[in-house]
Amino acid sequence: MTDTFKALVVNKQADDVSVQVKNLTVDDLPEGEVLIKVHYSGVNYKDSIASIANGNIVKNYPMVPGIDMSGEVVSSEDGRFQPGDHVIATSYEIGVSRYGGYSEFARVPAEYIVALPEGMTTREAMIIGTAGFTAGLSVQRLLENGLDKNNGPVLVTGATGGVGSFAVAILNKLGFEVEASTGKAEEAEYLKELGAARVISREEVYDGEVKQIASQRWAAAVDPVGGEPLASLLTQLKYNGSAAVSGLTAGTKVPTSVMPFILRGINLLGIDSVYCPKPTREKIWLQMATAFKPGDMESFVLKEVTLEELPETLPKLLKGQARGRYLVRIAD
């Protein structure tokens, strides 16, 4: 490898934050058993938060963001990985308290790493990224909690986002009837191409009033939104239905009552992709390479960007301007 390499570095002094591509050396990288030549990363909401002054997510500065990466092992002190192996590393402390994927080379603990499954390329792995992984984990949890194709339609909220888009496609591939909720009416055709049977407005899920109980409508829900919309959809789940919850873009407070739980036996399933145990992580990545893998992976890519384009790309997720995934090409 070269003596120096490029990385996107976020630094903060007082209230001023800089986001710049800089040259680093291997000595600048944190400790870890495995050195990876990074091929691809992606842009997640968490990455955008890491690039602003009041994001309150970065533990120390300077920091290289990028909570996801895929690439090739250059060297390894752990027998599970050998030079030349293709691997995926996502979540844990990556891009938050240790240098992440927006770098031509990264060094991470072996425990963070999953071998790239057969049937998946490093590019596809980062089209999926944490967003697609979270969607896969959400669907798996719903299946484990009894979701069946005969139960009725499944709701996906925030459907044009990374988690939502993949959830629509995965559920459709598995044969479920999907209702996709979005505030972007102009993206209805995109969602139908992914497999949504119907596209509904945000207001059809939450009209501004959370009832204690409402008419039964959905067998289950994949919800990366949270807040009052989550409280509202819980009142509309069918008997023994489940909601897999992974996000908070509509807020952290969920003003619901116990009525849907004690009258309909519904289940609220928390989805954590950050510290997800490694055996589960490996299982979901295998599913994403096989049974859950959408037919047209490129349809999720809104745009492919380089390190140099990231400073202008990261704010777009904070402004709600993203649809699908921004893929970050680190190396050719």
Rank of each mutant, 00 (worst) to 15 (best):
G136E: 02
S215H: 13
N151M: 14
G100I: 01
P62T: 07
A185Y: 08
S97I: 04
P260T: 08
G146C: 12
E204D: 10
T130K: 12
E204W: 13
T25W: 09
Y112F: 14
S70D: 04
I113K: 13
I284D: 03
W218D: 00
C276S: 07
G175V: 01
V245W: 05
D16C: 14
V154G: 01
V96A: 10
Q287W: 14
M126G: 03
A14D: 13
I36G: 04
Y45K: 07
E209N: 12
V21W: 13
V225R: 08
Y61L: 09
H86L: 13
T4R: 15
L237H: 04
P65F: 10
T134L: 14
W218H: 11
N172E: 08
G100P: 05
S70Q: 10
I262Y: 15
L269R: 11
N44P: 03
C276L: 15
P65A: 11
D47P: 04
Y99W: 12
L318Q: 04
T121Q: 09
N240V: 01
L137P: 02
A110N: 05
A110S: 14
R123I: 01
S91I: 02
L137N: 09
I213T: 05
S299Y: 05
S165Q: 07
A53S: 14
L317G: 10
A197E: 09
K192E: 06
K238L: 11
A214S: 15
A159D: 02
E193F: 12
A197Y: 13
L116Y: 02
Y61W: 11
A250Y: 00
P62R: 12
G146S: 10
P315M: 06
M69Q: 07
M69F: 14
I271L: 07
V9K: 15
Y40G: 03
I49D: 02
K303M: 07
D27G: 09
Y326C: 08
